[in-house]
Nucleic acid binder design. Structure first.
Length: 405
DNA sequence: AGGCGTTGTCGACAAACGCA
DNA sequence: TGCGTTTGTCGACAACGCCT
């Protein structure tokens, strides 16, 4: 017994060569729930003890069966599991695409991907993560790490591994260098002058409605209510690899919404529509020259020139959304009203007041007119082609925006 | 009840590419 | 050759769930 040791469960024993007296390995033994004796040999004591712990855990969980009756565990590689896992998960097309590129770039060609799921240790992950950081930026590293971690979490749920080896603290947290900025109404007005006429109404709309780029690029004639001075946002366009532009419902249910617009914006929009928009209810309000929804890259090129021209190269398209939010806030809109206008989902009680909030949006739009600055030629264009109804009465009056349904 | 990490999703930008 | 598309890469926001 000198060479062995007792534990709470089973025991380990050193094995040595009878002639030389040298240690040849370790053996672990225990008595199973069926009172049978079970043993296994290992090269190190640590491994022997680890096995005992594992067996003990099986018994504690009621999952123990005699070793010779256990089904051989199929070894699944990380690559195999990830592939299957992505297929099963419910993901938005864009996300699926994103994840597939993660796998392609950072797993299939990496030694980690070929390893058996169960064989991957925290150390393996750490090594892989530092490789990751060498090949890509901090944000991407964090995103990919977070993704792999989520895959392992799924593997844990699938009982393929006991724990998630992704244990690097904070590694999935992407550092943010927030460069949030907004434009002034004057800057917007100036930017319009540097845009092709085709794009002016679109940018104006973006800056005062807060629509997402995917939303206004896909706006259809039927979504525009000139009389009610509002647009209905229920779809957006996305660029997907291999599929070109794809139209789908908005991001969230609460994202389907009605956004009221200031009268002056509606005026510009109306003029624009008569000149550029496609015919019919499904006609694009802002078609490209060849009649497709304006693509992200085109929008970027166009906007880039304008923002350079006004000396605001830092102003991104998405910042127009923040601009719109800020202006709406100036009218005295509440948080709930702003969220509704921007299409944020509101998990709180605000939804109880949905009707009231929607009604308020019209008032916000009316109030916004006080803040708008427009280039002279756009103002003139607005007056040349007055909208029959929307122009009646003072737009300052709170009753101006909301009309019938 | 708010902070915080995780997970899902979309936008921004730029270079390569394709077509009339 | 100009204009728009496709693709790759990275950045950022938002929802969610957990923890305190």
């Amino acid at each position: 017994m000198a060479a062995g040791s007792r534990r709470g469960f089973g025991n380990t024993e050193r094995r040595k060569n009878a002639k030389t007296g040298k240690t040849t390995g370790w053996r672990a033994r225990y008595r199973g729930p069926d009172l049978g004796r079970y043993h296994r040999s290992f090269t190190t004591k640590i491994d022997a003890e680890a096995w005992l712990y594992a067996e003990e855990a099986l018994i504690a969980r009621g999952e123990w069966v005699p070793p010779d009756q256990r089904v051989a565990r199929v070894t699944v590689t990380l690559n195999e599991y990830v592939g299957a896992n992505i297929k099963i998960r419910k993901l938005a097309p864009r996300t699926r695409e994103e994840y597939e590129t993660y796998v392609e770039r950072f797993l299939t060609h990496d030694e980690l991907g070929g390893k058996s799921l169960r064989a991957i240790s925290a150390r393996d992950i750490t090594a892989w993560y530092s490789r990751l950081q060498e090949h890509t930026g901090t944000t991407m590293s964090a995103r990919v790490y977070g993704f792999v971690s989520s895959v392992f979490n799924a593997a844990v749920r699938d009982r393929l591994v006991d724990h998630n080896p992704c244990t690097i603290r904070g590694a999935s947290e992407a550092p943010r260098r927030s460069k949030k900025t907004i434009a002034t109404p004057e800057e917007i007005a100036e930017a319009l002058l540097h845009l092709d006429k085709r794009y002016r109404a679109m940018i104006l709309l973006a800056a005062w409605s807060g629509l997402r780029s995917g939303e206004f690029r896909n706006l259809r004639r039927r979504n525009v209510d000139l009389v009610g001075r509002r647009v209905v946002v229920d779809e957006q366009v996305q660029n997907l690899r291999g599929q070109g532009k794809v139209v789908r419902g908005v991001k969230t249910e609460a994202g389907a919404r009605i956004v009221h617009l200031p009268a002056s914006v509606i005026g510009v929009l109306e003029t624009h529509m008569s000149e550029f928009s496609q015919a019919g209810p499904d006609g694009l309000v802002f078609p490209s020259r060849i009649g497709t929804p304006i693509s992200q890259s085109v929008l970027h090129k166009v906007w880039n020139e304008a923002r350079q021209a006004i000396g605001r190269p830092d102003l991104r398209i998405h910042d127009l959304r923040a601009t719109a939010a800020t202006q709406a806030a100036r009218t005295g809109a509440t948080i709930a009203e702003l969220q509704a206008r921007l299409g944020h989902t509101t998990p709180n009680a605000a939804m109880k007041y949905q009707a009231a909030v929607a009604a308020r949006d019209a008032h916000i739009a009316v109030a916004l007119d006080d803040f708008i600055t427009l280039p002279v030629d756009l103002t003139a264009a607005k007056k040349r082609t007055p909208a029959p109804d929307a122009r009646k009465g003072s737009r300052r009056k709170a009753t101006g925006g909301k009309r019938s349904t």
